[in-house]
Write a protein that binds this DNA or RNA. Structure first.
Length: 256
DNA sequence: ATGGTTGCTTAGCAA
């Protein structure tokens, strides 16, 4: 979302408009202390209704992820809980209404071949290992976030322009395929097999006016919840207007 | 190959 503080008013307006049960946020760009807990806990509170709970894993300046929910989150986990010494706040999960919900901010990767690129591949390997060691495909899991990977060229408006980039390279597509093969369904693709719908447009190069977009934000669900996913859409209007994020939200609906 | 924009933090980095 490119800073929760810079876009707080937009966030609150979106919560009022869409009224989601759960919202996964990435790229907060603030510490836990600076997170706007009060505004969000009061958001949409009306007629005696509760506001949103927030499970937050913040970091100064960069990264930062959160999960907002109507129901109280339980068993909140920060990061991968592995042996890696990783100071970057890119993963949080919580148990909400019987679902293990993850908000993930996959590394961008900088340039192919760089240190950031190696970190991206290693982070994706660690995430798969996390599920291998600590979860089962029969669990009810929903993994949401900015994956920084366009799964195939149907998710890229101008594939020739992005070919071989950190968002489209075979190595990250392969890594994401391995993660999906662990037991996830791309629920957006399930409802839009034709592709051609995007979730992110670069601020640079005037990506949005030219619709030079990519679908790099995903909702992955294990088979149980995936079979109960009744719709998934990009809220493209949210990329418009004053001070938009460079991403548009994905809205997925589950019959529970 | 570079550019273009945005936010955080203060001119440079990350995206």
């Amino acid at each position: 979302m490119n800073s929760v503080r810079a876009r707080l008013e937009r966030l609150l307006a979106w919560l009022r408009k869409v009224d989601p049960d759960v919202l996964c946020l990435q790229e907060l760009k603030c510490t836990d202390e600076a997170f706007p807990h009060d505004a969000i806990s009061h958001a949409c509170r009306q007629a005696g209704e509760a506001g949103y709970h927030a499970a937050v894993f913040g970091q100064k300046t960069y990264n930062g992820v959160a999960i907002l929910s109507r129901s109280a989150p339980a068993e909140i986990e920060l990061g991968m809980a592995d042996d890696a010494d990783d100071p970057q706040a890119r993963l949080i999960s919580a148990l909400i209404d019987g679902f293990r919900v993850f908000s993930a901010y996959f590394p961008n990767g900088g340039e192919v071949g760089s240190e950031k690129w190696d970190y991206k591949l290693e982070w994706m390997r660690r995430l798969l290992e996390h599920f291998d060691h600590r979860a089962s495909p029969s669990d009810r899991i929903v993994l949401c976030g900015d994956f920084n990977v366009a799964i195939d060229d149907s998710d890229v408006a101008r594939p020739e322009q992005w070919a071989g980039s950190v968002l489209c390279h075979d190595d990250v597509r392969d890594a994401l395929e391995r993660l999906r093969d662990w037991g996830f369904v791309d629920v957006f693709r399930k409802h839009h097999p034709e592709g051609g719908i995007y979730s992110w447009w670069d601020y640079r190069m005037l990506g949005f006016p030219k619709n030079d977009g990519l679908r790099i934000d995903h909702v992955f669900a294990t088979a149980g919840p995936a079979s109960r996913c009744t719709s998934a859409e990009v809220d493209r209007d949210e990329r418009k207007g004053k001070k938009p994020s460079d991403h548009a939200p994905i809205v997925a609906t589950f019959d529970v």
